[in-house]
Amino acid sequence: MIMKLKHLTTVILSVGLLFMISCKSKPKDADIQAAVTTALQSSPGVSADVKDGVVTLSGSVASQADKDAAEAAVKLNQGVKSVVNNVTVAPPPPPPPAPVEVTADDALKTAVAGIVKDFPGIQADVKDGVIIITGEQKADRWKKLKMALDALKPKKVDASGLKVK
């Protein structure tokens, strides 16, 4: 009876010891998660998932350097076995459209005069990049004129004073 009890104690003790050892070598995922989350505070946009000591990073960052930094910050934590870096690097935003080029008034005036002289009945003025067209013109001729004027890169072609026949 005593022998049996002794045996049982040994068994309980060894099981307990084993449990403790396994606990020590394997920090709980929740603890890793907490540490990793703190480490990721400097990496906005990245989140971590921990399972059996394996940290999976997800989210989106602006550059490869940011992605690498997040992985490095996580790796340092105790209990992290490996890191699966699923963070995506977002493509840079498209460059803003090039501003509209407007020809300077002097150059525009010369060019407009050169074109308009072939369109009798049309008067043209240039002010602040805007070509102001007045007079009368047939529709197909006006179309030709408008095509030529638009090619001069004006700010606007104001034909509100034009009568199309």
Binding site: D150, S160, V164
Partner: peptide
């Protein structure tokens, strides 16, 4: 007749 003047097409 391209009269609105809200487009410059080159």
């Amino acid at each position: 007749n391209f009269l609105t003047g809200d487009v410059v097409m080159n």
